[in-house]
Amino acid sequence: MEVSLTVNGRNVSSDVEPRTLLVHLLREDLDLTGTHVGCESGYCGACTVHLDGKPVKSCTMLAVQAEGADITTIEGLANGELHAVQEGFWERHGLQCGYCTPGMIMSAAGMLAENDSPSEGEIKHGIEGNLCRCTGYHNIVKAIEYAAAKMRGDEPAEPEWEVSS
């Protein structure tokens, strides 16, 4: 069946089977492989994209459920230069293997769009649906704190490795 939607600002149509998941439409039909498939059962959050501005897991949705929706993937987050969250992950070493990173960044960006001054606890609440098997959560939280500061127009805190003990 035909599904028409907007992906990263571009109108696209695709002929999909009813059983096609949104993540497979993005990766296989549209070649947007930045959105990862981890568990394909709703646990890990590697497949997180924004649907009409809100983070959702694209592995627990049929492609057809995105009919008419505005989808943003990790490829569409930057606008000429890195999004503040991408910059934060770069500057504060918010990744190790990188598998969870696109989903972590999309969740963080979704959370910061609603609250640009999250506490450490609120950041953890925002990424509770994303698993990092490298268990690199500490730096991920620091990366999101960096992004929040940038988005507010504040100077991000010094990286921990620059702070003398």
Partner: peptide, 9 residues
């Protein structure tokens, strides 16, 4: 309930 992505859907 769940995480934010599940709550949104």
């Amino acid at each position: 309930f769940g995480g934010q992505m599940v709550r949104n859907a």
